[in-house]
Design a protein around this nucleic acid. Sequence first.
DNA 1: CATGAATGAGACTTCATTCAT
DNA 2: GATGAATGAAGTCTCATTCAT
Lengths: 191, 191, 191, 191
Amino acid sequence: MTKTGKRDEIVRVALELIAENGFHATSMAMIADQAKVGAGTIYRYFESKDVLIRELFKEAEMKLYEALTIKSLDNLSIRDRFLFLMTTLFQYLIANPLQFKYLEQFFNSPYGVEMRRDKILENKGESGPFLKLFKEGHAQGVMKDLPLVVLFALALGPIMDMVRDHILGFFILDEEMIAKVIEACWDGIKR
Amino acid sequence: MTKTGKRDEIVRVALELIAENGFHATSMAMIADQAKVGAGTIYRYFESKDVLIRELFKEAEMKLYEALTIKSLDNLSIRDRFLFLMTTLFQYLIANPLQFKYLEQFFNSPYGVEMRRDKILENKGESGPFLKLFKEGHAQGVMKDLPLVVLFALALGPIMDMVRDHILGFFILDEEMIAKVIEACWDGIKR
Amino acid sequence: MTKTGKRDEIVRVALELIAENGFHATSMAMIADQAKVGAGTIYRYFESKDVLIRELFKEAEMKLYEALTIKSLDNLSIRDRFLFLMTTLFQYLIANPLQFKYLEQFFNSPYGVEMRRDKILENKGESGPFLKLFKEGHAQGVMKDLPLVVLFALALGPIMDMVRDHILGFFILDEEMIAKVIEACWDGIKR
Amino acid sequence: MTKTGKRDEIVRVALELIAENGFHATSMAMIADQAKVGAGTIYRYFESKDVLIRELFKEAEMKLYEALTIKSLDNLSIRDRFLFLMTTLFQYLIANPLQFKYLEQFFNSPYGVEMRRDKILENKGESGPFLKLFKEGHAQGVMKDLPLVVLFALALGPIMDMVRDHILGFFILDEEMIAKVIEACWDGIKR
DNA sequence: CATGAATGAGACTTCATTCAT
DNA sequence: GATGAATGAAGTCTCATTCAT
């Protein structure tokens, strides 16, 4: 196996195991076993379990970010861009439940204290797609005159809850329902 | 110390430590030390750490439920009842940050899988205040025609995010801002 | 309950629990619970668990000794006295399985190192019924010229094994079989 | 130290400590200390203390079995084979007192309930040397017409008692005495 | 005298991490 | 680089014993 092959396998297995079992219930030995590497090998790539966990987060965050920025939306209206971004987000999270579960766990743990959920989308600086959208929505007077943090919560809070319930099998989200939820979120933030 | 004094102290300390550090990082020894009881004493009151954690949840859930049901609202309009309930919830969570943090952690852990956040308010049967409200809102055609689960997410998802940010000190929620957020949530669920 | 009533109850329950579960698996709390006394009460009668265990042994030993000396056998032949004593022993142990199990455990544990099984019957000085019998058997030339310790082992070793198997349900000892086993033991020690 | 060196050392030390102090009084920490390994190392080789205890038994049983089957005895008479086997057993147990003490403890504990002492020698199927001997003795009419279990008790019960006394230093067994004891056992089982 | 809540030493076990091979 | 056996600190839990009531 190539060098990066081992690293990738460790990352893949660690994300999967932690998403399913939690940080605590996932031992380094389990990861090593399932990734078919020696226990010590993980430490060639990650200084410690803590570092591994943070690295996993960064990679999951990055992938999500990329999913949300694949397409230029500059020529659409604010509303249409919101609908598109939200739909993309929904679809990505539903298609990648392990990533979603991992991110949820990460945020809801001591690790996530200094890294609010909003930051997933916001912290990429000016280029964060939701951030950019909300700023422009503000400027055009299309959205409520509320702090960006509040707009994030209004738009994304419900989404996270719905996706969690869907992944846990408590509620089935089909395309029609997704569209309705997004519309309702829009009602919450639009002026 | 009175008989129940020790149990109360264990509960208080355990909630605080777990809220701040997480389940995993809070050892039984830490709880015993800080509660100033012997290590074995905890086990007179709680069969195991697991049982302690679930008991803490039950007590926190109960207190929250009580806070939301102290006042009869039957003679108010749906909208006013919603505003009142949401304000009460906001205020309770902000005034009891340890309980909030504990509940958040509990839900976002293997413990909480079978106990969705919505259930906090819903599962008390017909008397769950939000459940009752949403059902009536539905019936009267005041609210969107969406499943109750979705209405919960739309109304409560943003609240949880805002409260978390407030408690972590990322954003200051004053009464005016709370009122605005609640209004926006109402926009999200009203027809 | 009278004072001795409590002590007796503790002794009875402790013997039963230890016979069934072993020293280690029987906690003082279990004994107190089942004897319906407070945990501290046991310590009014027995200085420690160790003392209780030794006291239990002494009482069991005493009862067995009494069972073997109820009847004067001086006018019987050596052989008949042997048969009678052995039959009595067999019957007593089978009728009192808890006592047997307790004694077995006691001997086969650090407690019993300084108190060989033979001592049950021997240590009552000159009056130990088996000891007396073997000495006279020796003197009359009816028994093999072997040390008393060896005669004890030849006569009693098989009995203990048989009784254990019977009590554990591995083998059914009826009166006929008992008689045969005793006859065989006699063959082992007779000249 | 070689790879298996640690396991062997753990086994050796555990057998010794348990033989001297009993299961309960021998902690895993004591074993680790005396074997000069880390506390966790024992668990690489044995899943739990329970498993260690059973494994120790299996190894002790196996060694005893091997000691009794090193030599083919098919061309000897039943009586000579009996004398030889018994002598071998005596010598093995006296030469390996730790194994003897361990086996005694094991049988006389909850572990040994389902594994009667007789089974040490019997359960190897048709090849158990004592079993084979007793069956043939039966068939040839050389031995008493008693169940095999009884023959085991008559032959081996006294041996165990004598060996225990010898090991504990209560009685010195020299070769001459051993021969006499075995003869007496033969008298007990022969027709 | 009796009680039983409280204690804390100590038992078993896990697991992140190291390091000789 | 890779391995995985070894480590030992730390965690959960038990239980003989004490002592205030």
